[in-house]
C-alpha cells in the first residue's frame, strides 16, 4: 500500500499523548494501529507508551485499552481474547476484534517474558508488539536484556574500569520464532510500508504474532530528536537491526543494504556509546563489529540469501 493510501486509514492513536518529543514509539504505534481493520482492544505493559498515552482522565487510544501491570500485558490480552471467544461462542457479542499488546523491551524481554512466552504457546489470536528502545527508559535509562553491548545506561554506566554494558543483547526475535507461532517479524519505522504490511500480516494470521520494532529514544540514546527515524535506517544499514520476517517457520529478508556500513556510524551518533571512542576502547568497537557481522551472516543464511 502506498503511503498516501495508508493515510486514508482512520486515526486510532491520537495526538495529545505525552511521549517525549521525537519518541520512536509514537510513529510505530500510530502505523501499527492504522493497520488493524477491526475494532481493537489494546493492552500495554507499564512503560513509556502506557504512561504517556493514558494519563487519567485522558486516553490517546480511540479503541478500548487496558493497562494491568508491568509484566503481564500478554496474559491480560490473553484474558480479553478468551473472553471474546467465549462471548462470541455464546452469541453474546457479534463483532470481530483485533487484540494487541504493546510492551517496551523491559516489559517484553525481561519482566514480561514469562507471560509473553505463555501467551504465545497457548496460541491466543493476538499481536504482541515490542517497541524496543534498548533500556528501561520510563524509569530513567536502566539497562535491560535488550540493551546493546557498550551502551552507557544508569545501571550499566561507563566507569573507570567498566566501559558500559558488557553483554550483547538477547535475540528475542529468534526466541519468539522458537515458539512456532505463525508470524514473527523484526521491523523498523524508517520503512513505514514494510512496518504496516507486517502489522497487517500479524493481524491477519490465525493465532499469535510477534513484532519486534526498533523505536529510538532520544533521551536514552543521547541522540537528537529529529534523528530518530534516520537512526533506524542507520541501524538497518549497519545490520545492527536487520529487517526480516518468519512466516510459518520460513525466514525472509526484507532489507539488504546496498552498501553495508560499519557499526561505527551507528555508534557515533549516540551519546550512550561516546565512551567507546575513547582511546583504549577500540577493541570494543571491533568486537561489536565482529558480533554484528556474525549475526548478519546467520540471518542471511536463514533467509536463504547466501
Amino acid at each position: 500500500m502506498k503511503l498516501k493510501e495508508a493515510a486514508r486509514t482512520s486515526e486510532r492513536f491520537t495526538g495529545g499523548h505525552r511521549l517525549c518529543s521525537g519518541c520512536g514509539a509514537g510513529p510505530v504505534t500510530n502505523l501499527i494501529m492504522r493497520s488493524s481493520k477491526n475494532p481493537a482492544v489494546v493492552g500495554a505493559a507499564t512503560g513509556c507508551l502506557e504512561v504517556s498515552s493514558s494519563i487519567y482522565p485522558y486516553s490517546a487510544w480511540k479503541d478500548s485499552f487496558i493497562h494491568n501491570a508491568f509484566e503481564n500485558a500478554a496474559a491480560t490480552i490473553s484474558g480479553v481474547e478468551a473472553a471474546h471467544r467465549s462471548l462470541m461462542k455464546q452469541g453474546k457479542i457479534e463483532e470481530d476484534y483485533d487484540f494487541i499488546a504493546f510492551g517496551g523491551d523491559g516489559g517484553t524481554y525481561d519482566i514480561g517474558f514469562q507471560s509473553l512466552s505463555g501467551a504465545m504457546e497457548r496460541g491466543h489470536n493476538m499481536v504482541y508488539v515490542c517497541y524496543d528502545n534498548g533500556a528501561y527508559m520510563n524509569t530513567g535509562i536502566q539497562r535491560s536484556s535488550a540493551t546493546p553491548r557498550g551502551a552507557n545506561t544508569t545501571t550499566s554506566p561507563a566507569g573507570k574500569v567498566i566501559p558500559g554494558k558488557e553483554e550483547y543483547r538477547k535475540e528475542l526475535t529468534d526466541i519468539m520464532v522458537a515458539h512456532n507461532i505463525p508470524y514473527v517479524a523484526q521491523a523498523s519505522p524508517f520503512k513505514p510500508q514494510d512496518l504496516m504490511r507486517k502489522a497487517q500480516k500479524a493481524f491477519e494470521v490465525d493465532g499469535p504474532a510477534f513484532l519486534n520494532v526498533l523505536a529510538p529514544c532520544p533521551r536514552g540514546w543521547r541522540s537528537r530528536a529529529e534523528k530518530t527515524i534516520e537512526l533506524t535506517k542507520v541501524a538497518a544499514d549497519t545490520c545492527v537491526w536487520p529487517l526480516f520476517e518468519i512466516e510459518n517457520g520460513k525466514w525472509k529478508l526484507n532489507y539488504n543494504p546496498k552498501k553495508k556500513k560499519a557499526v561505527d556510524e551507528w555508534l557515533r551518533q549516540q551519546g550512550r556509546f561516546k565512551h567507546l571512542f575513547k582511546k583504549g576502547n577500540e577493541h570494543i568497537i571491533e568486537e561489536i563489529q565482529e558480533h554484528t557481522d556474525q549475526r548478519w551472516q546467520i540471518i542471511l543464511e536463514r533467509c536463504g540469501e547466501v
Binding site: G15, L19, P192, T228
Partner: peptide
C-alpha cells in the same frame, strides 16, 4: 506528497486529507 512526514510524525500532527498532505499542521 510522499507522506513520509505523515508516517514519521510521533504526534500524529501532519495531516493528510483525501490522500494529500495538508500544510495545516496540527
Amino acid at each position: 506528497n510522499c507522506h513520509l512526514c505523515w508516517a514519521f510524525c510521533p504526534d500524529v500532527s501532519i495531516l493528510s486529507e483525501n490522500g494529500v498532505v495538508s500544510d495545516q499542521i496540527d
